[in-house]
Nucleic acid binder design. Structure first.
Length: 398
DNA sequence: TCTGGGGTCCTGTTGCGA
DNA sequence: TCTGTCGCAACAGGACCC
C-alpha cells in the first residue's frame, strides 16, 4: 500500500499572516474580549489592532493551536494560556470557532474524496489516503497527485495543506511534518535510516510524554536508538504489546490499512467550571450542570442516531486527579432521563469531598438506533459488582 | 501559572460461571 | 462437595491524539 497523510492548516486569516496568534481559551471568555468589535464582521475582516492580546486575557483555558510565529516563542498546543502569556504577551488571541472549522473540514475532505476515494478521517484537519488505485497516483512517486490535492483545496478554500507520502500510514504521518506548512514530503522505504531514525522518539504517533520519558531513562532518544534494541529487550521493558509495537515502528513497519469507515464507540460531554465547585456547598449548581450534560449527550446520540448502554461519569478534582465510574444497563438508550438516572447512580460511588473543577457524562457501547441489537429484548442484568469505594458515597448529592 | 473537550485504545483487576 | 483455574465481561484508570 502507498499512503498519503494530509493535514490542512486551519489558521487562515490573511491579516494575521506572519504574526504570533493563538487560538484557544474558553469560547465565552474570548468572545467577551472581542464583543465590542464591529457588528456583523467576521474574524477575517477585523483589523489586527482590534484583537485582544494574550496579556489581557484572564482565566482558565489552553491553547488549541498557534501560528508558526507564535510557536517561535515556545508556545504550543495544550499549553495553559497564563503560561503562554508570559512567553509572548503581545500574541493575539482568537476564539475557537468549531462550527467554522467543521465547515472547512467537510470541504477539505470532500475534495480529497472526489480525487482519492479511499480516505480515512483522522479528525478535523487530518486524513489518511490510500492512493494505490488512484489513476496516475504513482506519477513522480505521488508528487503529482499531492500537488493536485493541494491546489484543489487551496482554490476552493484558501487553506494550505501539508502532505506526506510513504509506503504506510506511520511513515506518511511523520513525513507530513517534514515540510510544514504547505509542503510535500516523499519518504521511501530506503530512506528509513537517513530520515526516520534521526527523529526524536516523540515524533512517533503513539509515543507521548510518558513513553518518551521512560525511553529517555534508558538512553533512547531517537527512533534509531529504539531500532538498535532487541525486540525481546523492548518487550521485557515495555510490555508485550507496546514493546513489540515499538520494535515494528522503529523499523518503519506498519500494516494498518486505511479505514474508510468507522462507528463511534462512545459519546460524551464534559465541562470545566469557571471556579471549582463543591458537591455540598454548590450542590444546586452542580446538579443543574450535571443534568444539562446528560441532556446534551442524549441530544447528540439522538441527532446522530445512536443508542448506548454503558453510562459513565468523570470527575476532575481540584488537584487534577480524575475519577471515573460507569455502569452497564440492560437496555440501550438515548434518553436523557435514563442517562441522568444511571449517571446519578455512578456519582454515588465516587468520593465527593474535594472541590471539583470538571464534570463529564459519557455513553458507551453504542449501536445504531436502527440496528437489531438496539431493539432486542433487555439482556440479563449485568452482574452487579460490589463497588469497592461504595463506602465513600456521601449520600445522594445530586 | 497552570493545565479544554471530545474521542480511542490498552492494561490491570475483579467477579462470575463453567 | 470442595477447590483450583481459566476465560470472559465489566470496570477503573491512564496514555495518547486532534
Amino acid at each position: 500500500m502507498d499512503a498519503f497523510y494530509a493535514s490542512v492548516e486551519l489558521l487562515r486569516y490573511p491579516q494575521l499572516k506572519g504574526l504570533p496568534v493563538v487560538i484557544g481559551g474558553g469560547r465565552r471568555k474570548v468572545d467577551e474580549a472581542i464583543r465590542d468589535l464591529p457588528e456583523g464582521s467576521t474574524l477575517a475582516d477585523i483589523p489586527v489592532d482590534a484583537f485582544p492580546r494574550l496579556k489581557d486575557y484572564v482565566g482558565r483555558g489552553v491553547i488549541t493551536t498557534a501560528t508558526y510565529p507564535a510557536r517561535q516563542f515556545g508556545i504550543g498546543s495544550a499549553m495553559g494560556l497564563m503560561k503562554a502569556a508570559k512567553l509572548c504577551p503581545q500574541a493575539l488571541i482568537l476564539p475557537v470557532d468549531f462550527d467554522e472549522y467543521r465547515k472547512y473540514s467537510r470541504q477539505f475532505k470532500q475534495i480529497i474524496l472526489d480525487i482519492a476515494p479511499v480516505m480515512q478521517d483522522r479528525g478535523v484537519d487530518e486524513v489518511y489516503i490510500d492512493f494505490t488505485d488512484v489513476p496516475g497516483g504513482q506519477r513522480e512517486g505521488g508528487r503529482v497527485l499531492a500537488r493536485l490535492i493541494q491546489k484543489t483545496i487551496f482554490d476552493a478554500t484558501g487553506l494550505t495543506c501539508s502532505i506526506g507520502v510513504a509506503p504506510n500510514k506511520l511513515i506518511a504521518k511523520m513525513a507530513s511534518e517534514f515540510d510544514k506548512p504547505n509542503g510535500i514530503s516523499i519518504v521511501h522505504e530506503g530512506d528509513l535510516q537517513t530520515r526516520i531514525w534521526p527523529l526524536p522518539v516523540r515524533k512517533v504517533n503513539g509515543i507521548g510524554p510518558k513513553a518518551d520519558e521512560k525511553l529517555q531513562r534508558f538512553g533512547l532518544r531517537t527512533v534509531g536508538d529504539i531500532a538498535a534494541k532487541e525486540r525481546d529487550w523492548l518487550i521485557a521493558n515495555f510490555g508485550k504489546a507496546t514493546g513489540a509495537w515499538m520494535h515494528e515502528v522503529s523499523w518503519g513497519r506498519d500494516d494498518r490499512p486505511v479505514e474508510t469507515e468507522s462507528e463511534p464507540v462512545s459519546m460524551s460531554r464534559e465541562t470545566t467550571f469557571e471556579r471549582n465547585l463543591h458537591a455540598v456547598r454548590d450542590r444546586a449548581e452542580l446538579g443543574a450542570i450535571f443534568t444539562h450534560l446528560c441532556e446534551k449527550v442524549a441530544e447528540d446520540l439522538q441527532r446522530k442516531g445512536y443508542v448506548g448502554k454503558t453510562i459513565g461519569i468523570k470527575l476532575r478534582y481540584d488537584d487534577f486527579k480524575i475519577a471515573t465510574r460507569d455502569q452497564t444497563i440492560a437496555r440501550f438508550t438515548a434518553d436523557g432521563k435514563a442517562i441522568r438516572q444511571t449517571a446519578g447512580q455512578c456519582l454515588k460511588r465516587v468520593p465527593l469531598e474535594r472541590p471539583l473543577r470538571l464534570i463529564g457524562v459519557r455513553v458507551g457501547a453504542l449501536v445504531r438506533v436502527d440496528s437489531p441489537e438496539a431493539t432486542s429484548p433487555a439482556t440479563s442484568p449485568t452482574r452487579a459488582r460490589t463497588a469497592p469505594d461504595a463506602a465513600a458515597a456521601t449520600a445522594s448529592l445530586f
